[in-house]
Design a protein around this nucleic acid. Structure first.
Ligand SMILES: [Mn+2]
Ligand SMILES: [Mn+2]
Ligand SMILES: [Mn+2]
Ligand SMILES: [Mn+2]
Lengths: 235, 235
DNA sequence: GGTAGAATTTCGGTGTGCCGAAAATCAAGA
DNA sequence: TCTTGATTTTCGGCACACCGAAATTCTACC
C-alpha cells in the first residue's frame, strides 16, 4: 500500500512534462525528462510506459512524450497548486522569491483542495506567481502573456519583464540584488563579441547579463499592461 | 530512493506510541499499535524491530514497546506539528474541530520547520489544540493538565472539560451540537443502571452520555484555570 | 506442572519506483 | 548504403513497507 507517494510521483512527471513546453514549445524526450526529475533514463522510460497505460501521456518509442487532455488537466491542476503556494508563501509569510520553490514542490502534493482554495480566496485569486508564471484557474484555464526570451530579443527592442524562471535560486538572488525583477522595463542594447554577455538597460542602469540570465528572463514587447495574453490551454 | 515517505512512516509509528500513553499510562503492545495504525500485526512487529535499530524504541519480544528519549523527542516534535496545524486550520481557515484531524495527519509530515514555526508565531504560540491536547514547545516541553476520564469520575464530582479525544469526528459533531465543548463545567449526576449512560449536567441542561462519549472526555476537578499542570515530558 | 488458546513473531512473498549494464534502435556522415 | 556513436529501451535486481499463513511463545487455568 502506497497511495500518497504514488500520486505525487505521477503528479511530478506530468507537471514537468507540461512545464517544459509552457514557454518554449519543444516536445520533451525521456532523457530530458529524466534530467529534469533527477532520475535515470531507464526509470523514466518505464514510468512513462505506466503513464501511457493510465491515459495521461502518449509516447511513441524513441520519440517524444506528450500529454493527453487528461494529462494536461492534471498538469494544470498541479501548476495551479505549485504557483498558488509560492505566492502564498511570499505574501503571507514573507518568503523571498528565491526561497519558495522547494517548499511548494512538497506542499503541492499534500494540501487538500479545500485548504488550497481557501488560500486562493484569501489571496484574492492571483493570476500569476512571484516569478511571473501564470496561475491556472480552478477549472483549468490559463492565460500566458505573450513573451520572448531575453536571449532571443533583437537589439534595440524594449520590453517589460513578465517572467523569470525560478529554477536557479542563486540567479534569483542576484537579479533581485540588481533590481531586475518582474515588470521592470528593459532595453536591449546589444551583444558583446564572441558569444559574450548581453547589454541591457534598466532605468538609468546598464547591466551585462550572461547566458544563464538571458535564458531565464522573458520580456513582453507588446502592450504595457498585462491586459492581453494568449489562451494557452483550455482543457 | 524513497526519503520522504520513509520519514513519515517512522513519524507515525512514534507519534502513535507516544499518544497512547499520554493521557492513560498504559504501555502499548505491537497488536494495539497495529490496530491504531490500521496495519497487520506482522508488519508492525517488523517495523518496530527497525525502529529499535534506529534507537527510537525499545522492545522486549512479546512485551511492550517503549520510546527511548530520542523517540520521545521525535514524538513530541510530531505532536507539536499535528496540533499546531489543527489549531491553525480552525483559527485561520474556520475549519470545524471535527474536520481538522485528517488534514493535519498529512501536513504534519510535509510542512517545513520554517513554515510551521511561522504559523506558530502568527497564532501566538498556542498551548493547546482545538481538542484540548497540549502543544509541546519547539524545544520539547509539554504541560498536560491534570485530568480524569469522565467515565472514571466519581458521582457528584464537578469538573471542567479539558480534553475531548478527536478520534471520532461523529462524536465531535454530536458534542458540539449539544454544546459540550472545551472548558464547559460538568457535574456528574450518576450512572443509569445495567452499565447504562452517565448522567451529567452542563449549565442548566442534563445529558445522558454513553460509553463512547464518557471514554473520550477528560475533566479537571482541580483549580478552575489552566494555571497548573503536570510536566509530562521534558525530553 | 501441563496444556489449550491467545498473542506475537517468523517466513515467504508482493507491488512500486528506482538503478546500472546490456541490448536495441536511430540518425548522421562517409 | 553502410557504419558508428548517441539515444533509448530492456533486463535483472534492489529497498521498502506491507501482508497472510505458519511457527513460536506466552498465559491462564486446571
Ligand atoms: Mn516553482
Ligand atoms: Mn514560480
Ligand atoms: Mn488530531
Ligand atoms: Mn487534536
Amino acid at each position: 500500500m502506497r497511495a500518497a507517494k504514488d500520486r505525487s510521483v505521477v503528479e511530478d512527471y506530468v507537471k514537468v512534462i507540461y512545464a517544459h513546453t509552457e514557454w518554449q514549445p519543444e516536445p520533451i524526450t525521456t532523457s530530458v525528462l529524466a534530467a529534469r526529475l533527477g532520475l535515470a533514463a531507464s526509470s523514466v522510460t518505464e514510468m512513462v510506459k505506466k503513464l501511457g497505460s493510465a491515459g495521461l501521456v502518449t509516447h511513441v518509442p524513441y520519440g517524444a512524450v506528450e500529454l493527453t487532455s487528461e494529462g494536461i488537466r492534471l498538469a494544470l491542476r498541479m501548476l495551479r497548486r505549485h504557483r498558488l503556494i509560492e505566492t502564498w508563501l511570499v505574501e503571507v509569510f514573507a518568503y523571498g522569491w528565491d526561497e519558495v520553490h522547494d517548499e511548494a514542490e512538497v506542499l503541492e502534493h499534500t494540501l487538500s483542495d479545500r485548504l488550497l482554495e481557501a488560500i486562493a480566496g484569501q489571496l484574492g485569486e492571483p493570476s500569476r506567481d512571484p516569478h511571473g508564471d501564470p496561475i491556472p484557474t480552478a477549472d483549468g484555464r490559463v492565460l500566458r502573456p505573450e513573451a520572448v526570451l531575453l536571449r532571443d530579443a533583437p537589439e534595440g527592442s524594449i520590453g517589460r519583464i513578465v517572467r523569470i524562471s525560478d529554477r536557479d535560486p542563486t540567479l534569483l538572488r542576484y537579479l533581485l540584488d540588481e533590481e531586475i525583477t518582474l515588470d521592470v522595463e528593459l532595453t536591449v542594447l546589444g551583444r558583446k563579441p564572441f558569444g559574450g554577455a548581453l547589454a541591457v538597460q534598466a532605468g538609468a542602469v546598464e547591466h551585462d547579463l550572461g547566458e544563464e540570465a538571458t535564458a531565464s528572463i522573458w520580456i513582453s514587447t507588446g502592450e504595457p499592461s498585462p491586459a492581453g495574453g494568449v489562451p494557452l490551454e483550455t482543457s
